[in-house]
Design a protein around this nucleic acid. Sequence first.
DNA 1: TCACTTTCGATATATTATACCGCGCTCGCA
DNA 2: TGCGAGCGCGGTATAATATATCGAAAGTGA
Lengths: 161, 161
Amino acid sequence: MSSSTPHLHIADHDHAKCVAGALAAARDVCAQRGERFTELRGRVLELVWESHRPIGAYAILERLRADGRSAAPPTVYRALDFLMSVGLVHRIESLNAYIGCAHPGQRHASQFLICTDCGTAVELDDPAVAGALAQAAEKRGFKVEARVVELSGHCASCAQG
Amino acid sequence: MSSSTPHLHIADHDHAKCVAGALAAARDVCAQRGERFTELRGRVLELVWESHRPIGAYAILERLRADGRSAAPPTVYRALDFLMSVGLVHRIESLNAYIGCAHPGQRHASQFLICTDCGTAVELDDPAVAGALAQAAEKRGFKVEARVVELSGHCASCAQG
DNA sequence: TCACTTTCGATATATTATACCGCGCTCGCA
DNA sequence: TGCGAGCGCGGTATAATATATCGAAAGTGA
């Protein structure tokens, strides 16, 4: 584990497989929806999946440039906007950062647990939370269109693992 | 109702009372905590309470300048940071904006219903939601330190009022 | 091949937020 | 009542994040 990933205890997992799976799922989703999964979009998705920590748009930009590619902010934001529009990437509002979607292709209302020690963000799809939110909104006649649910704190490993 | 507040159906309320109440509560909270409730902080809090719609830092800045006051971004951010630190103001992450706390002085885990039509944000303190979130986190050994729960959509009035 | 649409490069600029410095006021305390 | 320590704030500069716009290139479908 590199020093840049303290306590990344989503360890014990084959991350290459994560990335490959995400890319494969992306191809599927885009094919199904008749969207073009271009080389740039693929590369950006790959960078977003580089780790399980949300990554900023400008960090992605740096990496694209490191590839030798000419890139400017719009390059990144366009790709991210596309990836979010097809549900392959989520934006973490409290960090102004982006993370790969854990359940691409499926409709889901996700929640994030963000560890402020190791930086990892875990995506949940907890039905009890989703249900409680839906009820709270309905009780007030509110029609929900978008949800931002982000809990920050210490993951199990960092809290004392 | 001004054209700048379409469908503000938190109507039927004496907003001056809202503001006065918020300022009084602020004085109390600061007194209790031995914090200084300065004129600037009071004015910023008042501006945040100008409506029930989240307001951006730079909008606050403009209003301060309209007062004839000399002010720069740090002026506003310092005041907002203070007000948030004592729990008088919340930040709405999905809007990069700020709103007065509906339950100052009380510990609470709030959720926001943000209407994309009229711009109002209603603060809830729904125990079922709070409970579901606590459980979801605990189940995974996650120690929660901060919560961001923001639902966007259409309020009862705007959805069809 | 041609017309059409989408994607991308490129430049400029907008929006939101913070780092830093120094002064003066306030408050606690002798 | 004077003093020192800390806090609040004015002010400048700059960082970090995001968007508007335009034209060229590449893919798509007839």
